[in-house]
Design a binder for these strands. Sequence first.
DNA 1: CGGCCATGTAAGCAACTCCTTAATTAATGA
DNA 2: TCATTAATTAAGGAGTTGCTTACATGGCCG
Lengths: 121, 121
Amino acid sequence: MAAGATDELSLVFHALADPTRRAILSRLSSGEATAGELAEPFAISRPAVSQHLSVLESAGLIDRNARAQWRTCTIRTEPLDEVSAWIDEHRALWTERFELLDERLRDLKQKQQEQDNPQND
Amino acid sequence: MAAGATDELSLVFHALADPTRRAILSRLSSGEATAGELAEPFAISRPAVSQHLSVLESAGLIDRNARAQWRTCTIRTEPLDEVSAWIDEHRALWTERFELLDERLRDLKQKQQEQDNPQND
DNA sequence: CGGCCATGTAAGCAACTCCTTAATTAATGA
DNA sequence: TCATTAATTAAGGAGTTGCTTACATGGCCG
């Protein structure tokens, strides 16, 4: 019972939690590429890249079309939308809370100032 | 040389790649809480929660203020902003590419139709 | 001060991650 | 058909993760 969370959101977050995989996605942003082209700039072996691609594929972040002996990769945006939605939802809540907190802090500060200098009234 | 990526973005994504940690953050969205309060609904031990909180703290996602013997946790939004920025940037690029691809596909389809029915000119 | 709290740290274990090299699959072209 | 090219799968190792059960820390109240 260890690090294996299998729900979709966890898979996507996990896939994005690796600099190599993010770099691969960045590379794919500017156009589809073969596994070999992706492996070249990263100073890791071809199989390592293959495994990274499998992780990205499991997370639904890329498609691998086996055309001839060249497997070209393309990107899918849907999982990112889900991630974005999660983040936006929670950030909205938190920001709301922070504004409330800010207000409360301002109130406190004001009250404290009034206490510190009661003659200033 | 294994699973340890130490850059900030990786830390945040990794921290979010666990359902328990996301649930903790959700719980904290509705107000600060102590470690004990957070541990209760999750059916895991207190130390386990403590470790999850450490991960979230390392990623900069929460603050732990040691007030008395109750350590209350509060949320920070800055890391989420970074994550959002990364996602938005890349999704924008991909969407752009998809629109280009769509166009190309429409062009191809049209040309093919013209080839299939040359007399329709 | 000494016994309770709530919490964090340490040690240990099974499962997983990411990398490697070696063997395998699959399509191309002489 | 057989060597070549491109990529994945298999096997194995160093290091992490996430959980557990003890143990240690530090503030509270009798």
